[in-house]
Design a protein around this nucleic acid. Structure first.
Lengths: 147, 147
DNA sequence: TGATATTTAATCGTGCACGATTTAAATTAA
DNA sequence: TTAATTTAAATCGTGCACGATTAAATATCA
């Protein structure tokens, strides 16, 4: 059998995704430091700003994360005074995450973050939209393949 | 001033990157379990298979990681018997990472991993190459913007 | 040369991710 | 209605990432 040529990093789609994720983090870090959030915490807040009173599982299904990751993260947001956690009366297994006034107010403080990040991308908006769409399709294919 | 419409996750390029990264990890996990590596460890091995005896800094510059991440990771690979670490004679500040026979042999054991991952992507090769190139461009723009 | 600055790894603390397990509540089946 | 199963959140252990700091070696310069 023929030898495969040695693989290089830049041939790996996964590495371009992995390293771009880190690069995004480095852009977000100083911006989110201003509002006192980490990047995963920011994502949880984005999900809650869109719809309040979601369950841990509901938030997780949007972020592709589970309670083992979310529970400690959400507890930190609770300690920060941005939300409260309450058991669902209808189904006591579920915990509903509820924004505080402070948590809602943070949306305005963080309103400029997306524009700053867009700026750093150095891409035209339509290129960016196209790339987002392609990646979402890829992600869905990968998630499906992993069952 | 006009209110901005509430942001949704799927409008965020960063989230498509972030969640696709996780999805890749879920694909890689069972494949890399077979060869006893984590995904970041696999990347270090890819870098070393391409060129042996690199310094920690050299490896880091390719992976966009620093010694605070790499040193413990590389030590785990050393414990696993895949490499050794030795101080550079010329410059004692530097540590050279050297593959063992076992470390080199692992390249063959992991040879099928990229094909399996490609399969899971459900994309044509030229689409994948194009996406990789666009992400690499984006990453470089972000890294530049972050200084 | 000798003092200062820079560079390289390593260390430490915090916060994700995630597999595996546990606990409690709700659902389904017997 | 009780027993078995499923579901939701939480807990625990391990391994990244990364900011901040430290220690040692090298480079620069007065």
């Amino acid at each position: 059998m023929a030898e495969k040529p040695t693989l290089t990093l830049d041939q790996l789609l996964c590495f371009s995704v992995y390293s771009t994720g880190h690069a995004f983090n480095r852009i977000y870090k100083p911006l989110l430091d201003e509002v006192g959030l980490t990047y995963p915490q920011y994502l949880v807040m984005v999900v809650l700003w869109q719809e309040d009173r979601q369950t841990v599982r509901g938030i997780g299904s949007k972020l592709f994360l589970e309670s083992n990751t979310l529970t400690p993260l959400i507890k930190r947001l609770e300690v920060a005074g941005l939300l409260t956690r309450e058991r669902d009366r209808e189904d006591e297994r579920q915990v509903r995450v509820v924004l505080t006034e402070q948590g809602r107010a943070l949306q305005q403080k963080a309103a400029d973050v997306p524009d700053c990040v867009f700026e750093a991308c150095g891409m035209k908006l339509d290129e960016l939209v196209d790339l987002t769409r392609k990646l979402t399709t890829l992600r869905n294919a990968l998630e499906k393949s992993a069952q």
